[in-house]
Amino acid sequence: MPNKSSIPLSWRLNKSIYRLVGNKCKRCGTFFFPSRDICPKCRRKGDIEEVVFSGEGEVYSYTMINVAPKGFEQQTPYLIGIIKLKEGPLITGQIVRPNNNIEIGKKVYAVFRKLTEDSKSGIIKYGFKFKIKD
C-alpha cells in the first residue's frame, strides 16, 4: 500500500505543505509548486530559488468526491479543487466547507487544517486547504 502513514514522507513535505514553500526559475521566471529540482524548460541552465507562495488564488476546476481512497473514507463528501495561484502555478488541494457557492473563478485563500488522521496511534497530518473568499 502507498504509505499514507509514512513519517519520513510527511516530514520531508512539511515545509511545503505547512507554509506553501515552492520555488521559481530565475532564468525564465516560472514559478513551481510543488517545487522542482530542475526547471523543465531551462533544465540544467536554470537557476532555482525558493519562494513562499501567498496562498491566494482562484478555483480553476473542482469536484466533490463521494467515493474515497484509503484514509479518506470518513471525510466524504469532500471537495477537491485545482487552484490557480496568484503567482501562476496550478495546485491541487481540498476546499473547506461551506462550499455550496463553489464555481470556477471564485477567489480562494490557503488555510492550515488537519488533512488526515492515521488511526488512533498513527500520525496526524496537517497542511494547507483552501477557503472561498467573500
Binding site: 513535505l13 474515497a68 481512497p69 484514509g71
Partner: peptide
Amino acid sequence: GSGVLTTLMGAGDQEWEGSFGVTFAG
C-alpha cells in the same frame, strides 16, 4: 474496497494529488 482506488491512484502523483484524497474518478 478502497484499496483498489488507492492502488489505481498510484498512477497519479502520490505526493501532490493522492495525499489530498483525490481519486482517479476525481
